[in-house]
Amino acid sequence: MSAYRKETTPPPYCIDERMKIPTESPVLHVASRGIAPVIMLIGLYVFFHGHYSPGGGFQGGVLLAAGVLLLRMTLGVTQSQKLMPTTLTLKLSAVGALIFAGTGLVALLCGGNFLDYHFLPVWFEPVYLRYYGILFIEVGVTITVMTTLIAIYDDLLGC
C-alpha cells in the first residue's frame, strides 16, 4: 500500500476546473435556478408529511441534496457555495448524527430504553411526546443524509 502511494502523484486541488465555473448555456441557468427551489420545497414536504404518507427523513434529505447538487452542476461549485459551503457539509452531518444518537442517549439516561420517547425530559402529553420525538429524530436523519451526499459530490470532484 505504501509503495502504491509513493508512485502516484498527489491529486490536484480540483480534478476538473470546468466544474468550478458556471456552464455556458443560459437555458441551463434559468431552468436549474427555477427548478432547484421547487425540488427543495418538495423535499421539505416529503420530510414533514412522512408521518402520513410514503416518505420521511431519508427521502426528504435526498431530495434536498438533489436541489443543491443541481445548482452545483449548473452554476459550478464556486457560485453555489452560498447555498451550502463545502467546509460546512461534514460538520453538519456530524451534528445530525449527534441529534439522532443524543436523543436516544437522553432517553436512556432518563430511565427508558434507547430511543424511548416516552422518557424524554420534556413536559408533553406522552402521545405528543412520541409524535414530536420521531419528528426530531427525522430532523437529524435529514441533515445527515443531505450533507453527506453533498460532501460525496464535492469530494469526488476534489473541489
Binding site: 480534478i15 435526498v62 438533489a66 447538487l69 452542476m73 451526499l149 460525496i152 459530490y153 469526488l156
Partner: peptide, 12 residues
C-alpha cells in the same frame, strides 16, 4: 436521481 449524478462525475 443521485446515483446518476455520481456516475457522470465518476466518468468525468
Amino acid at each position: 436521481g443521485v446515483v446518476g449524478v455520481y456516475g457522470i462525475i465518476a466518468i468525468l
